[in-house]
Design a protein around this nucleic acid. Structure first.
Length: 624
DNA sequence: CAGCGATGTCATCCC
DNA sequence: ACGGGATGACATCGC
């Protein structure tokens, strides 16, 4: 099978070469200056229409839309545009043979039959205008039946400076392009019911014993080529229609394509694509894209599917494929994200909880990971206790204090007030003392009462023990967090002793200072983290600048060398007054401020040698 | 038992 | 003047 494929490939190449030889005969100038002349201006470049147009149409068809519903003018537009691209790429190793093949199509019948006045020199339009699909089919399937122009083909072969064997051994890329080119002739036939099955056609090709038979076969087909111009062009434009039709989208297909089911040829096409491409089965869009690729199937037929396919793939094709893939990925990603709680996504988008902490705890820098690890307890227990929080500050300053939260001994004692240094077994079990003067303060006391077992379960801080030992009816948290006015009022109204007042003030001071120390450490850590990040950023920036510097120096060196070489070349072309060429080693070019270029002697030690030579010459002259 | 980090506390400065 | 925030220094504890 591989041998057959190889021979088929070579045969296809030869056939395409022959077609290209015929294309050489085409009067390109007349073509360019004729009907399609205005289209030159809209030519966007080589292979632009060749690759983009089928995908564009395919995409539109897949979307259920029709950009240009088989408008003949638009078909001619795309076809002519492609032809112009191919003409311009003549000589380019990209799609040479294919381009010539298209020229063969264009020159013969299109201008004469469909396009009115034509400047083409081709006179071999024997069959006139036919159905494009029929003609194309004839091209690919009735080659043995045509033998009229065999002599012409041979003449063309003689005229062609490039031997067939030489061309046949061209680069792989050219071969792939040749395969594409020959497919361009046979591919349009897929749109219409073939009189001979495509496999039979290929078997005919394979049955050829040598290349001569293939050449004769090609020459037999030449008669069809001249009469298939218009059909070839239109078929080329509607190539995607045939593909789409094969895929089940019949909207854009021709009438004959619509009226008949998918032909075996088309099924074979897709089967081969599916086997030759590993992705065609995975993604329908991808399969369609590959199907829309010009002649990719035939490339697979030749057994060189991958390479040929890669040859067919232009950048635009890859863009299309990538777009399809990305769209699929996006769809999948969005689908997966839809099942996630938006809050979770928001959290994922946020910055590792530090921002949350900063939002709830205060305006301090949101960067410390260490603090973030302990921020949960920190912020949880703070609840307005820390002066570090702007929110807490604002609340406290306004006097609108929620005693449930700010003075809650439960939260504060559990986390922030975890005095582990000066703890000792709890030996005080005094009931909480209520505020005698303000009922609003009874709530936190009730909380203290409710949470009293927690105090029993864990150790108390040193200040807590002191307060209880001094019979102070307030918890440390209460003492610390209550406003100054409240604190002063408590000191005055309760008739505390001096020791009690001192202890109350110390407790409050230490509590305040403890929170301040925590905030201070947090800020310090944040600052350290920020500085580390800044150092990393600056380091990266430094490396980037160093790379740019090296690149710039390298570029400058290269440019300097180029300037030097150009200067030497230019100086070498100059002549002195006596008509002798200047020595580039002795003279150089100097660009003045006014933009004038002046030849100056090189100011180097070599100059001294020249002067020495001059002195030697003078001495010699004197001697003479 | 030393090292280390976390925390509390003190002293001090400053607002 | 006083309260309190900020911070360095030190102590203590737990790992």
């Amino acid at each position: 099978m591989q041998i057959a494929k190889k021979y088929l490939s070579e045969g296809l190449i030869q056939l395409t070469i022959l077609l290209s030889l015929i294309g050489v005969r085409v009067d390109i100038d007349s073509y360019l200056s004729g009907y399609y002349t205005p289209l030159i201006e809209i030519n966007l470049g080589p292979s632009s229409a060749y690759t983009q147009t089928p995908f564009h149409n395919l995409r539109d068809n897949l979307d259920g839309y029709s950009v240009h519903p088989k408008c003949p003018e638009l078909d001619y537009f795309f076809a002519s545009r492609r032809l112009l691209d191919e003409v311009r790429t003549l000589g380019s190793p990209r799609f040479p043979t294919q381009l010539n093949a298209w020229l063969v199509h264009q020159v013969s019948a299109t201008d004469k039959a469909d396009c009115g006045p034509s400047t083409s020199n081709n006179t071999d339009t024997s069959s006139g205008v036919q159905n494009p699909g029929d003609e194309a089919r004839d091209e690919s399937e009735h080659l043995p039946e045509r033998g009229q122009e065999e002599e012409d083909v041979k003449v063309k072969e003689e005229e062609d400076p490039a031997p067939l064997t030489q061309l046949a051994h061209s680069s792989t890329l050219e071969q792939e392009s040749l395969l594409e080119g020959i497919t361009a002739l046979s591919d349009p036939a897929r749109q219409h019911p073939p009189t001979i099955d495509i496999e039979q056609h290929w078997s005919n090709l394979l049955s050829l014993t040598d290349l001569d038979d293939l050449d004769s076969l090609v020459t037999e087909r030449l008669s069809d080529l001249d009469s298939d111009i218009s059909s070839a062009i239109s078929q080329d434009v509607s190539l995607h229609d045939a593909m789409v039709t094969s895929a089940g989208v019949f909207g854009m297909a021709s009438e004959r394509a619509e009226s008949r089911p998918v032909t075996q040829q088309q099924r074979t096409l897709f089967r081969l694509e599916s086997t030759g491409s590993t992705q065609s089965d995975a993604s329908p869009g991808m399969a369609m894209g590959l199907a829309a690729l010009p002649f990719a199937s035939v490339c697979n037929l030749t057994g060189n599917g991958n390479s040929a396919l890669s040859g067919c793939l232009d950048e635009a094709v890859f863009d299309q494929i990538n777009q399809l893939g990305l769209e699929g990925l996006d769809t999948q990603l969005m689908g997966s994200l839809e099942g996630i709680d938006p809050q979770v996504l928001e959290d994922l988008d946020s910055d590792s909880g530090l921002s949350l902490e900063s939002s709830s705890g205060g305006p301090v820098s949101p960067g410390s990971s260490e603090m973030s690890s302990s921020s949960s307890s920190y912020c949880e227990d703070e609840c307005g206790a820390t002066g570090y929080s702007s929110e807490v500050d604002s609340v406290a300053s306004k006097g609108i204090i929620d005693y449930d939260t700010t003075w809650s001994p439960v939260d504060l004692s559990e986390s922030v007030w975890h005095d582990h240094s000066y703890s000792s077994p709890a030996f005080f079990n005094q009931p909480p003392v209520t505020f005698p003067h303000k009922g609003i303060k009874e709530e936190p006391l009730s909380d203290v009462e409710d949470d009293e077992p927690r105090f029993h379960d864990r150790e108390m801080s040193r200040d807590e023990m002191r307060a209880r030992s001094m019979c102070i009816p307030f918890s440390v948290l209460q003492i610390v967090n209550m406003p100054v006015e409240e604190f002063l009022e408590v000191l005055d109204s309760h008739g505390f002793t001096t020791d009690q007042v001192t202890l109350l003030r110390d407790i409050r001071r230490r509590g305040k200072n403890k929170l301040a120390a925590q905030n201070c450490r947090k800020r310090k850590l944040d600052a350290i983290t920020g500085l580390q990040e800044e150092v990393e950023m600056l380091h990266a920036q430094r490396n980037k600048l160093l790379r740019e510097k090296q690149l710039t120096a390298k570029t400058m060196g290269a440019v300097g060398q180029q300037i030097k070489q150009l200067t030497r070349d230019l100086v070498a072309r100059l002549r002195d007054d006596s008509g002798r060429p200047l020595n580039p080693e002795r003279f150089t070019l100097q660009c003045g401020a006014n933009g004038r270029v002046v030849v100056q002697p090189v100011r180097r030690p070599a100059v001294s040698t020249t002067t020495g030579n001059k002195t030697d010459k003078r001495k010699k002259e004197k001697k003479q």
